[in-house]
Write a protein that binds this DNA or RNA. Structure first.
Lengths: 110, 110
DNA sequence: CGGATTGGTGGATGATTGTCAAACCGTCCC
DNA sequence: GGGACGGTTTGACAATCATCCACCAATCCG
Protein backbone atom coordinates (compact mmCIF):
# COMPACT_ATOMS: atom_id res chain seq x y z
CA UNK A 1 0.00 0.00 0.00
CA UNK A 2 1.92 2.92 1.33
CA UNK A 3 5.21 1.59 -0.06
CA UNK A 4 4.11 2.15 -3.61
CA UNK A 5 5.62 4.82 -5.73
CA UNK A 6 4.64 8.41 -5.02
CA UNK A 7 4.51 11.36 -7.33
CA UNK A 8 6.96 14.18 -6.56
CA UNK A 9 5.93 16.39 -3.67
CA UNK A 10 7.67 18.91 -1.41
CA UNK A 11 9.32 17.76 1.81
CA UNK A 12 7.34 18.72 4.93
CA UNK A 13 9.70 21.56 5.82
CA UNK A 14 9.47 22.98 2.29
CA UNK A 15 5.72 23.43 2.36
CA UNK A 16 5.16 27.14 1.86
CA UNK A 17 2.14 28.88 3.34
CA UNK A 18 1.59 31.32 0.50
CA UNK A 19 1.83 28.49 -2.01
CA UNK A 20 -0.73 26.49 -0.06
CA UNK A 21 -3.11 29.45 0.11
CA UNK A 22 -2.66 30.12 -3.55
CA UNK A 23 -3.48 26.49 -4.27
CA UNK A 24 -6.63 26.68 -2.16
CA UNK A 25 -7.71 30.02 -3.57
CA UNK A 26 -9.62 28.28 -6.33
CA UNK A 27 -13.14 26.88 -6.03
CA UNK A 28 -12.32 23.59 -7.74
CA UNK A 29 -9.30 22.91 -5.58
CA UNK A 30 -11.14 23.94 -2.44
CA UNK A 31 -13.81 21.45 -3.35
CA UNK A 32 -11.17 18.77 -3.83
CA UNK A 33 -9.82 19.58 -0.38
CA UNK A 34 -13.20 19.06 1.23
CA UNK A 35 -13.53 15.77 -0.63
CA UNK A 36 -10.19 14.69 0.75
CA UNK A 37 -11.08 15.74 4.28
CA UNK A 38 -12.28 12.26 5.10
CA UNK A 39 -8.66 11.12 5.12
CA UNK A 40 -9.34 8.39 2.61
CA UNK A 41 -7.65 7.84 -0.71
CA UNK A 42 -9.48 9.03 -3.78
CA UNK A 43 -9.21 8.26 -7.45
CA UNK A 44 -8.72 11.00 -10.01
CA UNK A 45 -11.92 10.39 -11.89
CA UNK A 46 -13.86 13.67 -12.07
CA UNK A 47 -17.11 11.72 -11.74
CA UNK A 48 -16.04 10.42 -8.35
CA UNK A 49 -15.48 13.97 -7.19
CA UNK A 50 -18.60 15.81 -8.25
CA UNK A 51 -16.69 17.51 -11.02
CA UNK A 52 -18.51 16.14 -14.02
CA UNK A 53 -18.46 19.50 -15.69
CA UNK A 54 -14.67 19.58 -15.91
CA UNK A 55 -12.43 17.86 -18.38
CA UNK A 56 -10.29 15.13 -16.87
CA UNK A 57 -7.12 16.95 -17.85
CA UNK A 58 -8.34 20.01 -16.00
CA UNK A 59 -8.86 17.96 -12.88
CA UNK A 60 -5.44 16.44 -13.37
CA UNK A 61 -4.00 19.93 -13.49
CA UNK A 62 -5.70 20.95 -10.25
CA UNK A 63 -4.50 17.84 -8.50
CA UNK A 64 -0.98 18.57 -9.58
CA UNK A 65 -1.21 22.07 -8.10
CA UNK A 66 -2.41 20.65 -4.79
CA UNK A 67 0.32 18.03 -4.74
CA UNK A 68 3.10 20.45 -5.64
CA UNK A 69 1.90 22.81 -2.93
CA UNK A 70 2.24 19.98 -0.40
CA UNK A 71 -1.46 19.66 0.33
CA UNK A 72 -1.94 16.18 -1.04
CA UNK A 73 0.09 13.09 -1.77
CA UNK A 74 -0.44 10.74 -4.69
CA UNK A 75 0.28 7.04 -4.54
CA UNK A 76 0.70 5.23 -7.81
CA UNK A 77 -0.55 1.66 -8.00
CA UNK A 78 -0.85 0.14 -11.42
CA UNK A 79 -2.89 2.38 -13.61
CA UNK A 80 -4.62 3.98 -10.64
CA UNK A 81 -3.54 6.96 -8.57
CA UNK A 82 -4.70 7.39 -5.03
CA UNK A 83 -4.78 10.93 -3.77
CA UNK A 84 -5.04 11.78 -0.09
CA UNK A 85 -4.50 14.67 2.27
CA UNK A 86 -1.10 15.16 3.91
CA UNK A 87 -2.83 15.83 7.17
CA UNK A 88 0.03 14.92 9.50
CA UNK A 89 2.55 16.99 7.57
CA UNK A 90 0.25 19.98 7.38
CA UNK A 91 -0.75 19.78 11.02
CA UNK A 92 2.89 19.60 12.04
CA UNK A 93 3.93 22.56 9.93
CA UNK A 94 0.85 24.76 10.33
CA UNK A 95 -0.91 23.73 13.54
CA UNK A 96 -4.63 24.25 13.45
CA UNK A 97 -4.69 25.59 9.93
CA UNK A 98 -6.21 22.59 8.19
CA UNK A 99 -8.92 22.17 10.79
CA UNK A 100 -9.78 25.86 10.59
CA UNK A 101 -9.91 25.69 6.80
CA UNK A 102 -12.12 22.64 6.73
CA UNK A 103 -14.43 24.15 9.32
CA UNK A 104 -14.52 27.41 7.38
CA UNK A 105 -15.43 25.55 4.23
CA UNK A 106 -18.66 24.56 5.96
CA UNK A 107 -19.67 28.14 6.66
CA UNK A 108 -22.96 29.08 5.01
CA UNK A 109 -22.56 30.93 1.76
CA UNK A 110 -25.46 33.33 2.19
CA UNK B 1 -12.72 57.79 14.43
CA UNK B 2 -14.74 54.75 13.57
CA UNK B 3 -17.67 56.84 12.30
CA UNK B 4 -15.69 58.14 9.37
CA UNK B 5 -16.41 57.03 5.90
CA UNK B 6 -15.32 53.56 4.88
CA UNK B 7 -14.38 52.23 1.50
CA UNK B 8 -16.73 49.57 0.09
CA UNK B 9 -16.30 46.13 1.61
CA UNK B 10 -18.34 42.93 1.80
CA UNK B 11 -20.78 42.41 4.64
CA UNK B 12 -19.57 39.88 7.22
CA UNK B 13 -21.87 37.15 5.93
CA UNK B 14 -20.71 37.70 2.37
CA UNK B 15 -17.06 37.05 3.11
CA UNK B 16 -16.12 34.09 0.96
CA UNK B 17 -13.45 31.62 2.04
CA UNK B 18 -12.06 30.94 -1.41
CA UNK B 19 -11.89 34.66 -2.12
CA UNK B 20 -10.01 35.22 1.14
CA UNK B 21 -7.55 32.44 0.38
CA UNK B 22 -7.07 33.73 -3.12
CA UNK B 23 -6.34 37.16 -1.70
CA UNK B 24 -3.78 35.75 0.72
CA UNK B 25 -2.14 33.53 -1.87
CA UNK B 26 0.26 36.28 -2.80
CA UNK B 27 3.48 37.11 -0.96
CA UNK B 28 2.88 40.85 -0.89
CA UNK B 29 -0.63 40.55 0.50
CA UNK B 30 0.46 37.95 3.02
CA UNK B 31 3.09 40.38 4.20
CA UNK B 32 0.46 43.08 4.52
CA UNK B 33 -1.63 40.71 6.61
CA UNK B 34 1.20 40.13 9.04
CA UNK B 35 1.74 43.87 9.26
CA UNK B 36 -1.91 44.32 10.14
CA UNK B 37 -1.83 41.56 12.72
CA UNK B 38 -1.11 44.08 15.46
CA UNK B 39 -4.69 45.27 15.14
CA UNK B 40 -3.65 48.86 14.63
CA UNK B 41 -4.52 51.12 11.74
CA UNK B 42 -1.92 51.56 9.05
CA UNK B 43 -1.38 54.10 6.36
CA UNK B 44 -1.02 53.06 2.75
CA UNK B 45 2.46 54.37 2.25
CA UNK B 46 4.68 51.55 0.94
CA UNK B 47 7.56 52.87 2.99
CA UNK B 48 5.64 52.32 6.19
CA UNK B 49 5.07 48.71 5.25
CA UNK B 50 8.49 47.47 4.23
CA UNK B 51 7.46 47.55 0.61
CA UNK B 52 9.86 50.15 -0.71
CA UNK B 53 10.44 48.13 -3.82
CA UNK B 54 6.83 48.42 -4.95
CA UNK B 55 5.14 51.31 -6.66
CA UNK B 56 2.48 53.02 -4.58
CA UNK B 57 -0.18 52.13 -7.12
CA UNK B 58 0.77 48.47 -6.83
CA UNK B 59 0.35 48.61 -3.07
CA UNK B 60 -2.96 50.36 -3.57
CA UNK B 61 -4.06 47.50 -5.81
CA UNK B 62 -3.10 44.87 -3.23
CA UNK B 63 -4.93 46.71 -0.50
CA UNK B 64 -8.01 46.85 -2.63
CA UNK B 65 -7.89 43.08 -3.15
CA UNK B 66 -7.65 42.53 0.60
CA UNK B 67 -10.49 44.91 1.31
CA UNK B 68 -12.78 43.49 -1.35
CA UNK B 69 -12.12 40.00 -0.02
CA UNK B 70 -13.24 41.17 3.41
CA UNK B 71 -9.87 40.84 5.09
CA UNK B 72 -9.33 44.50 5.85
CA UNK B 73 -11.35 47.63 6.30
CA UNK B 74 -10.33 51.10 5.22
CA UNK B 75 -11.35 54.21 7.04
CA UNK B 76 -11.15 57.46 5.14
CA UNK B 77 -10.17 60.55 7.10
CA UNK B 78 -9.28 63.59 5.12
CA UNK B 79 -6.62 62.67 2.61
CA UNK B 80 -5.47 59.72 4.66
CA UNK B 81 -6.72 56.14 4.65
CA UNK B 82 -6.38 53.92 7.64
CA UNK B 83 -6.33 50.21 6.94
CA UNK B 84 -6.90 47.59 9.61
CA UNK B 85 -7.78 43.95 9.97
CA UNK B 86 -11.44 42.91 10.23
CA UNK B 87 -10.51 40.54 13.00
CA UNK B 88 -13.89 40.33 14.69
CA UNK B 89 -15.72 39.69 11.44
CA UNK B 90 -13.23 37.08 10.33
CA UNK B 91 -13.16 35.34 13.69
CA UNK B 92 -16.94 35.22 13.74
CA UNK B 93 -17.23 33.83 10.26
CA UNK B 94 -14.20 31.52 10.21
CA UNK B 95 -13.34 30.67 13.82
CA UNK B 96 -9.67 30.02 14.38
CA UNK B 97 -8.67 30.65 10.80
CA UNK B 98 -7.01 34.00 11.25
CA UNK B 99 -5.04 32.87 14.27
CA UNK B 100 -3.90 29.75 12.45
CA UNK B 101 -2.87 31.80 9.43
CA UNK B 102 -0.92 34.32 11.46
CA UNK B 103 0.79 31.55 13.39
CA UNK B 104 1.57 29.72 10.16
CA UNK B 105 3.10 32.85 8.71
CA UNK B 106 5.73 32.61 11.44
CA UNK B 107 6.80 29.10 10.45
CA UNK B 108 10.46 28.92 9.42
CA UNK B 109 10.94 29.03 5.67
CA UNK B 110 13.82 26.53 5.50
C1' DC C 1 -2.60 -10.13 -28.44
C1' DG C 2 -5.88 -6.37 -28.38
C1' DG C 3 -9.21 -3.55 -26.47
C1' DA C 4 -10.67 -1.02 -22.54
C1' DT C 5 -9.43 1.68 -18.46
C1' DT C 6 -7.03 5.28 -15.91
C1' DG C 7 -4.75 9.11 -16.12
C1' DG C 8 -1.15 12.40 -17.84
C1' DT C 9 1.18 15.54 -21.56
C1' DG C 10 1.48 19.32 -24.68
C1' DG C 11 -0.48 22.90 -27.26
C1' DA C 12 -3.86 26.53 -27.85
C1' DT C 13 -6.73 30.09 -26.08
C1' DG C 14 -9.00 33.47 -23.45
C1' DA C 15 -9.10 35.42 -18.79
C1' DT C 16 -6.90 37.04 -14.79
C1' DT C 17 -3.12 39.10 -12.53
C1' DG C 18 1.05 41.83 -10.83
C1' DT C 19 3.59 45.60 -11.94
C1' DC C 20 4.77 50.21 -13.45
C1' DA C 21 3.97 54.84 -15.15
C1' DA C 22 1.32 58.81 -15.74
C1' DA C 23 -2.52 61.29 -14.95
C1' DC C 24 -5.99 62.41 -11.68
C1' DC C 25 -8.60 63.76 -7.25
C1' DG C 26 -9.68 65.47 -2.70
C1' DT C 27 -7.57 67.57 1.23
C1' DC C 28 -4.48 70.28 3.84
C1' DC C 29 -2.07 74.43 4.49
C1' DC C 30 0.84 78.56 3.22
C1' DG D 1 -5.47 80.56 -4.89
C1' DG D 2 -1.94 77.29 -5.47
C1' DG D 3 1.34 73.86 -4.12
C1' DA D 4 2.23 69.74 -1.69
C1' DC D 5 0.52 65.41 0.17
C1' DG D 6 -1.75 60.77 0.24
C1' DG D 7 -3.93 57.69 -2.58
C1' DT D 8 -6.64 56.01 -6.49
C1' DT D 9 -7.59 55.22 -11.39
C1' DT D 10 -6.51 54.09 -15.96
C1' DG D 11 -3.82 52.04 -19.42
C1' DA D 12 -0.21 49.06 -20.97
C1' DC D 13 2.38 44.87 -20.79
C1' DA D 14 4.22 40.49 -19.64
C1' DA D 15 3.31 36.47 -16.91
C1' DT D 16 0.42 33.21 -14.97
C1' DC D 17 -3.66 30.47 -15.06
C1' DA D 18 -7.93 27.61 -15.99
C1' DT D 19 -9.85 25.23 -19.44
C1' DC D 20 -10.41 22.31 -23.43
C1' DC D 21 -8.85 19.18 -26.96
C1' DA D 22 -6.21 15.68 -29.13
C1' DC D 23 -2.92 12.51 -28.36
C1' DC D 24 -0.11 9.46 -25.57
C1' DA D 25 1.43 5.90 -21.93
C1' DA D 26 0.98 2.33 -18.84
C1' DT D 27 -1.85 -1.25 -16.99
C1' DC D 28 -5.33 -4.61 -16.66
C1' DC D 29 -8.21 -8.22 -18.57
C1' DG D 30 -10.60 -11.31 -21.83
Amino acid sequence: MSDDERLPQPAPAEIDLVTVLHALGDPVRMRLLTSYADGAEHSCDPRHLGLDHLHKSTVSHHMRVLREAGVTTTRVAGRNRYVSLRRADLDARFPGLLDALLAAAQAPTD
